[in-house]
Amino acid sequence: MKRFRNVLFVADEQSAYEQAFERVCWLAKANAATVTLVDCIDSGGPADLSRGFSALPRIGRKNIEDQVIAVHRAKLEDRAEALRARGVTVETTVLIGTPFIEIIRQVLREKHDLLIKGAHRAARGPFFPGADMHLLRKCPCPVWILNSAAEPRAQRILAAVDPNFEDPARTQLTRMVMELATSLARADGAKLDVVNAWNLLEEATMRHGLAKIPEADVNQMVAKEKDDSEARLQKLVAEFAEFDDIMRVLHIKGMAADVIPEHVAAEGIDTIVMGTLARTGVAGLFIGNTAETILNHVSCSVLTVKAKGFVSPVALEGGAA
């Protein structure tokens, strides 16, 4: 995990930041990283915040606005002091605006290399709510949402991989997933499952009677796809042989959107490390469909990374309070 030097820690009241505190402290010390704590006043921006207090003219809306910001800043400083007391270099910033937009702008402006936060407190059921999903979709740096009772240490980690060495973007992303998952598992003393779901495209259609394709031919294509996929997986994990003592490699037939959530539930996985491969270089294409489906069916902690060249749809503008 020695790759994060400029960590953004979302410590607002809507996030279960307490869950992330120990993890942030460990990360900062392990990486000699600077941590920036942010809180965001949820409004349309400074102008809307000021207008919101216009019903109390005798007090003065500017005075109220200043006091509201001061309270947020004081609470943030209290949280920062707890980290500073443990030797962590901490800065604080109060943002004003739509939280996920301002948080992503902070990432872009200050070039943070990791965003970490506790899960949104309003979360119900096995889904990430809109606030967290916006960050998972649109934030350009790795995003770590902590939602596991195992924190501050993971016990069971799943690395979701789909190696394809003919695709440079996917290869880079898959290796990053493995690097993060293996180093995290080693640091936490956790067990790691490397899961690769494979399938033959349109196998069910080819087996349909209307297709008139001999069953033996379909079986042969399935066997070849399995062998090719297995070879790619073994080539990938061979690069991480030093982690064989904590790593289990699983090559499972099925759609990743089904296989991963099922494995998480069956094996008690508390942390998933996964890539969110989408078309790169085009603003507005946020996340791959498979990744989003998986995220909508799990409730454990998730560390996601984007493909190189990902362009966030959030523009770099606005500022901090």
Rank of each mutant, 00 (worst) to 15 (best):
225 E>F: 01
45 G>C: 10
85 A>E: 14
142 P>N: 03
212 K>M: 09
292 E>R: 00
282 V>M: 11
176 M>Y: 10
297 H>F: 01
241 A>Q: 14
258 D>K: 13
49 L>W: 04
268 G>R: 10
315 A>R: 08
148 S>I: 04
176 M>W: 05
286 F>Y: 03
35 V>P: 04
257 A>E: 15
138 K>D: 06
233 L>A: 07
101 I>G: 02
279 R>V: 12
143 V>T: 13
289 N>H: 15
154 A>L: 01
81 E>S: 13
227 D>R: 14
55 A>H: 12
35 V>R: 05
8 L>Y: 13
279 R>Y: 10
96 I>L: 07
243 F>K: 00
196 N>M: 14
113 D>M: 03
35 V>M: 11
290 T>Q: 10
257 A>G: 06
37 L>N: 02
251 H>L: 00
161 V>Q: 06
167 D>Y: 07
254 G>M: 10
65 E>F: 01
128 F>K: 02
167 D>R: 08
25 C>N: 12
254 G>I: 11
214 P>G: 09
158 L>W: 10
218 V>W: 02
57 P>E: 00
262 E>N: 14
241 A>G: 09
223 A>F: 07
47 A>R: 01
82 A>V: 12
247 M>N: 08
54 S>E: 13
73 R>W: 02
208 H>P: 04
316 L>D: 12
319 G>W: 00
102 E>L: 02
268 G>M: 00
290 T>W: 08
27 L>Q: 12
131 A>M: 00
116 I>Q: 02
66 D>T: 13
286 F>L: 03
209 G>L: 05
70 A>T: 05
311 V>L: 12
227 D>P: 00
319 G>L: 04
201 L>D: 15
121 R>Y: 03
61 R>S: 13
219 N>T: 11
276 T>S: 11
